[in-house]
Design a protein around this nucleic acid. Sequence first.
DNA 1: TATTGTTATACTCTATAACTATA
DNA 2: TATAGTTATAGAGTATAACAATA
Lengths: 144, 144
Amino acid sequence: MTTSPTDPLTLEVVELIGTVVARYYTEYEQAAAQHSLTGAQARVLGLLSLEPVPMRRIAQKLRCEPSNVTGIVDRLETRGLVERRPDPDDRRVKLAAPTPEGLETSRRLRESLDFAREPLSRLSEAERALLRDLLKRMLGENVL
Amino acid sequence: MTTSPTDPLTLEVVELIGTVVARYYTEYEQAAAQHSLTGAQARVLGLLSLEPVPMRRIAQKLRCEPSNVTGIVDRLETRGLVERRPDPDDRRVKLAAPTPEGLETSRRLRESLDFAREPLSRLSEAERALLRDLLKRMLGENVL
DNA sequence: TATTGTTATACTCTATAACTATA
DNA sequence: TATAGTTATAGAGTATAACAATA
């Protein structure tokens, strides 16, 4: 049912992407751990850093069940990094929002994502632009 | 202490890589689930498909503590996908090896990594070659 | 003594199902 | 009745520490 290419070149690229994913993922976890956060907690905190988000929406972003978000936000809240706010428009909804400290932690976490930038320093600006365009084409329109 | 580039272009590429990682990772988990495997179990099984591997070596590859591998291999063994063998050269070592059924499951799992190939079909062969070279340069020599 | 694998423990993430309070 | 969030539960992954067997 598929028409995906299976030529050696494509498989080599798939392998390389797998390597990038493995490296990026484990190093993200380590960066989170340096701030005493789990990967899931770091992802949620990063998500909130733009604007307060309903619990349900967080679950959708993380692709997990809403019941899990309760615990993750609980732990962030216990540590004073996040707070729950009522939604003026719908009293069923709770908005998770970062505290000032949470915002600061999120900022430092983003800083320490240096490991993701470092490998790119091996490429010239023109090559980085090329890589950007290839990745965008690969990901298509539905980039979220 | 860092000289990593922080220009908008670099940050955009970092963002794109993050998107690739998130998509690839969750879809890998889903592919594993279709075979009633967790992500960790699928990774271990894939690791063994080339040759039997000592427990300790599995932990190094997964970047986790050796004690965790015991449980993961236990569950794979219970399902008849993996077996433990003695190492003739060192009686302390146990080699984890796939059963014929485990090998077949590993093969089908690899097949279903189709999702990773599909986005690449949007690129021409020349573009895929370009992407390969950029990724290789980015990852450097230590690609494992 | 050092190393390999295991056990025991505690914490987090995960899905499922049932519950509550709103809509 | 439908939806948002929670609770309760069970399974899996994780790190830490202590242990037995072997080197």
